[in-house]
Design a protein around this nucleic acid. Sequence first.
DNA 1: CGTGTTTGACCAGCGC
DNA 2: GCGCTGGTCAAACACG
Length: 269
Amino acid sequence: MCLVSGWEAYSAKVKKLEAELQNVKEENNTLRLMVQIWSNKYKQPEFQLDEIRSEQRVTDSSENGLINHDHANKRARTEFPMENKPLQVFVRTHPKDNSLIVKDGYLWRKYGQKVTKSNSSPRAYYRCSMAPTCPVKKKVQRWFQDKSILVATYDGEHNHGTTINDPLRPSSSTPKGSNSSTDLPSPIMAHDKEAIATLSGFAKTDPEQTENSVQRSEPNTQNKIEEYVGSLIKDPNFTVALAEAVARSITNKPKQQEGLNLNLNLPEE
DNA sequence: CGTGTTTGACCAGCGC
DNA sequence: GCGCTGGTCAAACACG
């Protein structure tokens, strides 16, 4: 008797997991589609012109000292230079999980938390504690559109080679007694920085439509996305950011095909 | 007792 | 110049 009920419970769990996996796959496809659309738009001459203009702006600003490159010596708000934008990682967490923990394989020490005006969820500030001199910091905040998604913004590069496990990769061995922030990634994660940065900018423009596009996968999703992208392109800020992001993605990852690679760490089909 | 977290205060850049 | 805001500091606290 117990065996039968146990088997039924097991089957139900398997079905539930399969359903979740299906949702994840649909999300992944939607994101991939969005990035491909943007990538195609980039190929248009006006996009390339925008990129040239935005690069010119960066150069001018840097020469005038308007952009702060010296993060270590300034406590104030920092404008990241265009060529060194922080990596942004979106991590889906359990809806009931209220912790601001992004599992990336590094050891982090929390040094502050703040509620920002742009997002009602608190933002947590972490410093890499795997090496005393490591300058890397990260900010973790829940995505204002979907509180189950954590947005981690990384600033700087690790000056040490050691990680508890390879960052941003799942592994079966989690160190015992490690800081909770060092645990390994949640099942759904994207870590292409340009794509995510773009997605982030995209989200700020129109929360409702973005949620529809990203969170759901309907038969006419592609049409909706294309319509929305078309409207976004009229926004000069968006086009500059997007062109810059796509260009860098292409430059940095020549071997990747079909636009940007949204690595969601999904199981192989 | 050592280490990490919490949280209010403080600092500095930015916009008006 | 002033207020707002994001980022950091550091004392108090919690936990193993």
